[in-house]
Design a protein around this nucleic acid. Structure first.
Lengths: 234, 234
DNA sequence: AATGATTTGTTCGTATGTATT
DNA sequence: AAATACATACGAACAAATCAT
């Protein structure tokens, strides 16, 4: 106020703008602090056909994060049986109201919330893969477990969009409630060897500290190395 | 103000929040209007190895958009020769200050600004592919032209991040200047058959009206059909 | 073409509430 | 309990863009 000969309200407005731009962060009762630049966490969405590495889910993300010297942890899965809403039904090509198994997980990096992931499986899969209904983590990963049970993942399709976080997400990620910081939402539909949709996985990441990489065609191996701290761009 | 017995400033603050959430949009002197939901434009980032379709650049995006009944147009390229900054140099694995060819384009859908795309090539490429220096559009697409000149694109890597738009982008896309609506920035580094980096393409899209799709492994052909209006999710 | 009404944008001064230290 | 700092609200004035007359 003294420096710019402006009123408190004006300074407040300016600080709000800086907060929108991500330059500062305000904490009620504590103060306003310049944001420290966080190196984005890099997730590779494509699978390397040779090594099988990548994909950004299950065990792979743990390995990918660990490779960058960070520690990845996952909550126990929240396993539910519910009826498919229009969104889930459309993605899995089943009828609305059909029962599905949902397995939700909270994922942390270095103890800080990193992403929210929920997978939906047609309930009929449980006949051949009963452990989908267990409330324990499937240590080898559900993709490996399903393959073991004869359900191979032949491919998948990701749809990536950016949107305003909902209440759940602002709470979990500790984001401001006014939607200044957005989230990246990735819908992954996995297909089995017959082209049947066996899984829908929805993963939500805060947009400001994540980066996503996809490799297409022949990319030099040296560049396939996972670097969670990518010094390029920005 | 009458309905909620609140002051103008309070109502203004509320409207600002609604604008941040994307519910309304204010136009100076005209009024405040509820936002009409726009169906996102879908861009497929992966290339179908069989058909060669996809990739989201050059001719492909025109075809992809046309398939959804919209019309795609592109400005004449803004061709420049400039020195590589740290970002470009790192992406192309060249020294900072090395001369590069930049070709920038503004891309429109149905006459409305859709994306900004700039490609950078090492200037040494111009020996074998002199038309890179022409200020005309390369109608068959630069990827096809380079292949014709013996420089094949064997693969590419995309890095996707979300950030606040700069002045250029808010002007071009007609976004609010306070960074409420963010942009998706995609860095694409293309490799030739020897694993050499031949191109860096940076494409910027407004985050609120675009969706990106990637296909990995075997995805049913029926699902490869491009749908610029995807009724799933949201 | 000019003017006034309407609407959003910006700033100020002031007061009160609430979380933190 | 007091001081500090952010959050919310009110009333007022003026600027700037648009629109109707």
């Amino acid at each position: 106020m003294a420096e710019y000969h402006a009123s408190r309200n004006t300074v407040r407005g300016a600080i709000k703008e800086l907060a929108t731009l991500g330059v500062v962060r305000t904490l009620h009762g504590k103060g306003t602090f310049v944001t420290e630049h966080v190196n984005p966490i890099v997730t590779t969405l494509t699978t390397d056909p040779e090594t099988g590495a990548g994909g950004g889910e299950g065990l792979v993300y743990t390995a990918e994060v660990a490779a960058s010297g960070r520690s990845a942890t996952t909550s126990e899965p929240d396993v539910r049986i519910q009826k498919a809403n229009a969104d889930i039904a459309h993605s899995l090509r089943i009828l609305v109201g059909t029962e599905v198994i949902s397995r939700g997980e909270q994922r942390y990096i270095d103890g800080r919330p990193w992403s929210l992931q929920t997978s939906f499986y047609p309930k009929s899969l449980a006949r051949r893969a009963p452990r989908l209904l267990d409330a324990d983590s499937i240590d080898e990963g559900t993709v490996a477990y399903l393959r073991e049970r004869g359900i191979q993942q032949a491919g998948y399709r990701d749809a990536i969009q950016v949107r305003i976080p909902d209440k759940n997400e602002t709470d979990y990620f500790n984001l401001p409630a006014d939607g200044r910081i957005q989230v990246v939402e990735i819908y992954r539909v996995a297909f089995d060897q017959n082209g049947v949709r066996v899984r829908l996985t929805i993963t939500v990441y805060p947009a400001d500290r994540n980066r996503f990489v996809i490799n297409v065609g022949r990319v030099p191996i040296s560049d396939m190395l996972i670097k969670a701290v990518d010094e390029s761009s920005g």
